[in-house]
């Protein structure tokens, strides 16, 4: 399943880059996608992927909101917290988690501990809670 997602992803990039749907170009794209090496991927069920993509779409307006908050009120304080990673995350989902947390301007993942912690750096208006 994840193998297909990977192939579709590569083909998508190819067509976006070339924007050309002639048979030759489609053939070149398919051949290149099949020839590029594929690493071992641990597969997550499609349900998990769908939730991740939904979260990503929700995170974009959220991050604009936070940007305006920082804009209107100065955030002068910094602190670091730790957050537990959900049990049995595959590497792809961990990547997505890090992406989501770092995308919002108030939080940045500073370290990912393989034992199951994200170290998150925050900025806030008040001193450390």
């Amino acid at each position: 399943m994840t193998g297909y997602i990977n192939l579709v992803f590569r083909l998508g990039i190819w067509f976006l880059l070339t924007a050309n749907f002639s048979p030759t170009n489609i053939a070149i794209g398919i051949i290149v996608t099949l020839l590029l090496p594929r690493g071992p991927v641990m597969s997550s069920p499609p349900r998990v992927w769908a939730k991740g993509i939904k979260d990503l779409l929700l995170a974009i307006p959220q991050s604009y909101l936070e940007a305006f908050e920082i804009l209107l009120f100065p955030h002068r304080h910094e602190y670091v917290t730790r957050k537990r990673v959900p049990h049995r995350r595959t590497s792809g989902m961990v990547f997505l988690d890090v992406l989501l947390i770092t995308l919002t301007p108030k939080t940045i993942v500073q370290n990912y501990d393989p034992e199951g912690w994200y170290e998150i750096h925050h900025i806030s208006r008040k001193a450390e809670p």
Binding site: I13, F15, L16, L17, A19, V98, L99, T102, L103, I108, V109, Q110, N111, Y112, H121
Partner: peptide, 24 residues
């Protein structure tokens, strides 16, 4: 649009990942 969508996507992914790598 194909070019701009690709640019949007790579901006979104690479910039955030670069932020994480620099922080780390």
């Amino acid at each position: 649009w194909p070019l701009l969508v690709l640019a949007l996507f790579s901006l979104l992914v690479w910039n955030t990942v670069l932020g994480y790598v620099l922080a780390y």
